[in-house]
Amino acid sequence: MEVDEVLTIARATGDDDPRVALAAARELRRAADRTEAAVVRRARVGGMPWAEIAEQLGVTRQAVHKKYGRR
């Protein structure tokens, strides 16, 4: 997703129609989740330990491993 697209969606969260604003918030959350997953994969490929990734994300090591670890 391009930066301009994210900005457009972010602006839509202020729409007077709550349906439009809620849909935009949902899409921002999905985009953030996809971005976080990609960054975590890059960090792991680069050798960063789960504990450090967790610290940077503000969660526990167990939480980040559960969410992104191999199953």
Rank of each mutant, 00 (worst) to 15 (best):
M1N: 04
E2S: 14
E2R: 14
E2N: 15
E2L: 14
V3C: 00
D4G: 14
D4F: 07
L7A: 06
T8W: 01
T8M: 09
I9P: 01
A10S: 08
R11G: 08
A12I: 05
A12P: 00
T13F: 01
G14L: 15
D15F: 02
D16I: 05
D16L: 10
P18K: 05
P18A: 12
R19M: 08
R19L: 13
R19F: 12
V20C: 03
A21S: 10
L22M: 13
L22P: 00
L22T: 13
L22C: 03
A23Q: 13
A23V: 07
A24H: 05
A25L: 15
A25C: 04
R26N: 12
R26V: 08
R26Q: 13
L28V: 07
R29G: 04
R30P: 00
R30E: 09
A31N: 08
A31E: 10
A32I: 04
R34M: 08
E36N: 05
E36G: 03
A37H: 06
A37G: 09
A37V: 05
A38Y: 03
V39C: 00
V39K: 02
V40K: 06
R42M: 12
R44K: 15
V45S: 07
V45E: 13
V45Q: 12
G46T: 08
M48F: 02
P49D: 11
P49Q: 10
P49K: 13
W50V: 07
W50H: 07
E52Y: 06
E52G: 01
E52Q: 15
E52P: 00
I53Y: 06
I53G: 03
A54P: 03
A54M: 03
E55Y: 01
Q56L: 15
Q56F: 04
G58T: 03
G58L: 05
G58C: 04
V59K: 10
T60W: 07
R61I: 01
Q62M: 09
Q62K: 14
V64P: 09
H65I: 00
K66S: 14
K66M: 08
K67D: 02
Y68V: 12
Y68R: 11
G69T: 11
R70D: 12
R71Q: 12
